[in-house]
């Protein structure tokens, strides 16, 4: 039982990261009705930017972290919307989705050529120690990841549902035309969504990079699992992305432990297929209908 709980906690920690990234899929979907295929790279890049500031500019880590995250949010929150989403969305969601695929490649290759093709160590905010509780050893870093991610997601959920700005964001996402008539600054709300997405991606990057090491290719795995998580949980609900992320993380961990490391990637994909067949809107998603 102790072993199972250890696997469970490790899975929840990884799942919390997937959830942070999956929320990005949800936010972009709600505001632009498209899928950001560069979401994994959004999680990869902040850590690289921070390390670049430390190694190339000689900044202390805390300053590099603040500047790196701010730079990332500016470039891939504000900049992403202005330079990619706004011009492309006029031509439909498919060109925008393809543009995000191109962005993913540019981000990955840019990180490889501009910084390093090799993995880099990334400082952890917490020591690599274990807590012993009723005979179970639990990693302090895993606990921290779960707590920080849950607080961030809980805070987002509170912000969206309990504050005036958050409700305006929801209104802008659900029906931008009516929201505009009601005097809601829709463009500003959409921009806010993109900034939040970039912020959550940066948080995920800082949390996961001490474990995965900072590397240009990290976005591939994270992006895939977060995409699966978003579909499993429900593409149009933040709580769905949270649940989906945690479920996929736990399944991945248990698959590695009890099935096989070779097939661990296949198990969440099987889950994805089942969800699409049985409950296509996701476990916590809302059914959507569109006129075409």
């Amino acid at each position: 039982m102790a072993e199972f709980i250890a696997y469970l906690i490790a899975g929840l920690a990884t799942g919390a990261i997937y959830a942070l990234a999956a929320i990005g899929f949800t936010l972009v979907w709600q505001t632009s009705q498209t899928i950001n295929f560069a979401q994994g790279e959004f999680v990869m890049l902040p850590a690289i930017l921070i390390l670049a500031l430390v190694k190339l500019a000689g900044a202390p880590f805390w300053l590099a972290a603040v500047l790196g995250v701010a730079l990332f949010i500016a470039l891939f929150g504000w900049g992403f919307k202005i330079t990619i989403v706004d011009p492309m969305i006029r031509h439909g969601v498919l060109p925008l989705a393809i543009a995000t695929m191109a962005l993913a490649i540019i981000m990955k290759e840019g990180a490889k050529d501009g910084f390093s093709a090799e993995a880099q160590s990334f400082p952890s905010l917490l020591p690599a120690q274990t807590l012993s509780f009723m005979g179970i050893s639990i990693s302090l870093q895993h606990i921290a990841i779960i707590v920080v991610a849950c607080v961030a997601i809980g805070g987002l959920q509170w912000f969206v549902t309990r504050t005036r700005t958050g409700r305006q964001m929801q209104a802008a996402a659900q029906n931008p035309g009516v929201a505009l008539i009601l005097g809601i600054p829709v463009a500003r709300m959409v921009m806010l969504t993109f900034l939040i997405n970039a912020g959550l991606a940066a948080l995920a990057s800082v949390l996961i990079s001490p474990i995965y090491l900072a590397k240009f290719s990290n976005g591939e795995v994270i992006g895939l699992f977060a995409f699966i998580a978003a579909i499993v949980g429900g593409f149009n609900q933040v709580r769905g992305a949270l649940a989906g992320g945690l479920i996929v993380g736990v399944i991945d961990s248990l698959a590695a432990a009890y099935v096989s490391t070779s097939y661990r990637l296949a198990v969440p994909l099987v889950l994805l297929v089942i969800i699409i067949l049985v409950k296509p809107e996701g476990l916590f998603g809302r059914k959507e209908e569109r006129r075409v």
């Binding site: 072993e3 490790a10 090491l213 490391t261 070779s262």
Partner: peptide
Amino acid sequence: DVSTEQGQADFASDAIKVKN
């Protein structure tokens, strides 16, 4: 006898296996 994959990022499950 713990098999892992080339390029694997998450080793938590493997470490737990080894510990146990």
